[in-house]
Amino acid sequence: MPAAEQQVARIVAEANRVLVGKEHQLRLALACMIAHGHLLIEDLPGVGKTVLAHLLARLFGLQFRRIQFTSDLLPADVLGYSVYNRDRDAFTFHAGPVFTNVVLADEVNRATPKAQSALLEAMEERQVTVEGETRALPKPFFVIATQNPFSQIGTFPLPESQLDRFMMRLTLGYPDREAERTLLQGQDRRKLLQELQPVLTPEQLLQLQRSAHQVTTSPALLDYLQRLLDRTRSPEYPVGLSPRAGLGILHCARVWALMHGRAMVLPEDLQAILPGTVSHRLASADHHIAERLIQEVPIP
């Protein structure tokens, strides 16, 4: 476990050189990645969404592809398609951009529901079925989708059922003064990114993912989680948390504990990852709903 903590520290230190002042978000994104989850980033353009996605791929030495979602995007543009090959007298499959380790689905709400669901199914199943043939996606597979919260005209917002498939939703937000100054003084981000060397191998990431399953969750902690889940199922909340959400939260908390070098999950771990994991699932306009939830439920 302490090894995991050191690895994470090295990644964070390295990432900090490029993505200034976003350490907490970076850690959450890392947690999401180690927990086999997918990430939804909801923010304005230009605050570093692409940089973050790129960073995560580079630091683990993973393949990275970007799909710009537009209203005329077709499922085949995401998944791939077969073309008849005259020489071999057969159809050959041209894998789509989804066949990679890290996918950045930019402005996912601009595409039609049909194209969206193609991606979302791939996220859930971690495999793609094209023309009756099932093809496994590479491991690890991690999707970072972004959506722009303000320009809702001509968009297809993700329905709640689809939102539930993202383990975490983050906002990056504007950098603070100090970070912005560093940013303005520093070099070009793209250049920095290209210079970045991988810190961990993909195999080490898979190892981290496996280690997360060893983290203990005691009955006392499960009590606390159940209290939290129960609380959201009261009439005060428009939508309660699903059992899938509960499983996701718990696993994410395991990863968080692992990243902090602990072999057991503490209430603090749950509290740390809760805002990221529940706010998009509770369908509430209140940005602080997760904080409120934490305050309302005493730790048993």
């Binding site: 503490l266 209430p267 603090e268 509290q271 934490i294 305050q295 309302e296 439920v297 005493p298 730790i299």
Partner: peptide
Amino acid sequence: KHSAQGPLD
């Protein structure tokens, strides 16, 4: 200690 405060905090 706040009732929702974890032991480490």
